[in-house]
Amino acid sequence: MSIQARLPLRPSSSTKAEGAAPQQGSGRRRTARRDQKYGLLFASPWLIGFVAFIGLPIIASAFYSFTSFNLFQSPEFVGFANYSQLLADDRFYKAVFNTFFLALFGVPLGLALALALALLLNVNVKGQPLYRAVIYLPTIIPTIVVVYVWRWLLNAQYGFINEAISTIGLHRPLWLDDPMWTKPAILIIGFWTIGGTAVIYLAALKEVPAELHEAAKVDGAGPFLRFRHIVWPAITPVTLFQVVVSLIAYLQMFTQPYLLAQEGRNDVGAGPNDSMLTYAMYVYQNAFVYLKMGYASALAWVLFILILVLTFIILKSSKRWVHYGN
């Protein structure tokens, strides 16, 4: 390889071809050949990785979704049985409902909060780097620690959250023991770890041209109008990115609800009345607790198709509300 790599060194004509623009012919062909060779060579780790860790597993998973299969005996073809079983499965519907519920509230509220935080962090006052670090801090804490800290904070009897709630004279929820309150608990934890999204918004806000602000001010536009007509259009591309990313994250949410609901190791419960059973949790339970690998694969494929469809719809709709400037 080292000899080949040094090849361009040898023929002086290649040097000339690079330098002199006219009389290209063979030089351009050589460039094309070099690009082809090194492009493939540099990309090869991922090409191999894609086949091994993504491509073949996708095909295998599609195949398994048409089989009955539990680790210990080889897959047995069952046609669409898994998919029709899924349509009659109450826990499947429960998981879909819970997951969509979380996404429906979590994505818009989360992005609104992240944007509000970014606007605050963009105000010109002392100490902003420190405040930014504090807002970002929760995202560096291991998820399992985040969840356990919040289980403690949300403790119905001894937790700080209920203490604060009763201080302002409201009714104390039972949080993790009340199916009405488990999903808000998951959302609150999601909002606490919104710092990454906020930092990306902050970077986008810093790119909004100052001249536009100034011009609008001269025209007498107040902060609200300036946000509506200058800031918001400029950050719609980033918003599109954040909507897609956070929607996908919500649709695949596993660790937070799994650990919030956990009573014991490999416990298949998902909170009171299955109120924390998310789609990804249900896939995991079927695959690694019930060992129904075929059924779990079918579930995973339904999720994949849902994500593709929703992403496609969002990208389509974006033509109407995303502004690409310059």
Partner: peptide, 28 residues
């Protein structure tokens, strides 16, 4: 580098960002 297939590979890279790990989890 300009190589044949680059566009396709880049598209696949982007597309796999959307792939839920649950799909490949079991075969892997």
């Amino acid at each position: 580098f300009e190589w044949r297939g680059r566009g396709v590979v880049f598209f696949i890279v982007l597309a796999t960002m959307m792939l839920p790990p649950q799909v490949t989890m079991i075969p892997l």
